[in-house]
Computed example of a mutant assay.
Amino acid sequence: MSVPTVFFSGGAGFIASHTIPILLERGYRVRIFDSMLRGDRDRVDEFCATGQVDLVEGDVRYGGAVQHAMRGCTHAIHFATVSINKSIADPYESVDINVIGNHNVFAAAADHGVKRLVFASSASVYGDPQKLPMHEDDVLQPLTPYCISKRMGEDLLGFYQRTKGLSWMALRFFNVYGPGQKTEAYYTSVINTFLRRIRSGEPPVIDGRGDQSMDFVHVTDIARAVVAALESERDNLPVNVGTGVDTSIAQLAKILIAAVGASMEPQFNPRDVLVSRRAADITRAREVLGWEPTVPVEKGMADLVRASA
């Protein structure tokens, strides 16, 4: 019997580096498809040295390259994307990679009859939520080209499910963090800014009252959810992957001060701030994936502080 093989676009990235070891443990081969413009080549080389992983350097915007690389794969994970902050600065590139790229991967997966495709969607498809916690059936109001492309990706998956029987899961990731994340990443910039100040003996500065919040979910929990979605009996659903806990920026500052072992209070910069809050309803993840988050934000942040010391 042939070994199950996962086509993994964006497989040289941050979340992939935590997901691939679980796939290998579970007996999959992995074919990383990545442009390597931002990929971690050293980590990919380590994976390839196992003999269970190979790298195809390519761009998801080229449908023929995707079709060719998908050949012989039984499963697919699609992570290749342009980040949320870059999508506002350059909507053209965002639409090119995120929309055309999504379509090329989904079409190839449908053509090759893969058993399951897992798509990295995003909590940003909700826009500014009307209520917390955010549920998969809530109204979607994506605000940027990145967020719009994620919602469009989910709709395209539905199209290939209806026309070609593609089996898929779309994971709406909340605020992913953890070791190995690039320092300029959208969600980690606030963590890094606070840490730099605390370590230099200066209090973190918070705009407004620090009420704005995120649902910080650790990358090891995200990786487990990806593999669970690849293997779940249920399919063709979007699923929130978060912790259900909204951590305010003021709380985050205090968690990081404690993790560093400093003695200070955050400073507040009084000004009007658009308060956005995030917290996932993770009932569906529990029921459909059998998944629970295992890393509380205090422990995850403390580990991150130690790793970056």
Rank of each mutant, 00 (worst) to 15 (best):
V82L: 10
M214A: 14
R196C: 13
L166W: 04
R278Q: 15
A120G: 00
G178V: 02
R162G: 13
A253G: 02
G51E: 10
G101A: 03
P133S: 01
I97F: 06
V260N: 08
S83Q: 14
V3F: 04
Q67P: 09
V275N: 01
G58Y: 10
S232A: 12
R278I: 09
R278S: 15
A120W: 05
Y160M: 03
S2T: 14
F216V: 09
A223E: 03
L195K: 08
A302F: 03
F14K: 06
S17N: 09
F106S: 05
I148W: 12
Y28N: 11
R209W: 14
N98C: 05
G153A: 07
L274A: 15
I32P: 03
A108F: 00
I191A: 08
M134F: 01
S83N: 14
V99Q: 12
V44L: 02
N240C: 03
S248T: 13
D90Q: 04
W168R: 07
R71K: 15
E46S: 13
G11R: 06
E287L: 13
A170K: 07
G208R: 03
D221I: 01
G10I: 02
M1C: 14
D155A: 15
N236T: 11
E265C: 03
W168M: 07
I100L: 15
I100K: 15
V275E: 04
P21S: 05
K86G: 14
W291Y: 06
I88A: 05
V30M: 05
L37N: 14
L143D: 12
C73S: 12
H75P: 10
D246Y: 11
V260D: 07
A109S: 04
L157H: 00
G201D: 00
V217K: 05
S200W: 06
A76F: 00
Q181F: 10
V95D: 03
H68D: 15
A49I: 01
A302E: 10
V273Y: 00
G242D: 00
F174T: 01
V30C: 06
R271H: 11
G101N: 07
T50E: 07
A228I: 00
P142T: 07
A12F: 01
G201W: 02
A253E: 06
A259N: 03
G113M: 01
S9M: 00
V6M: 08
H78D: 10
T193G: 15
T183M: 15
D221Y: 09
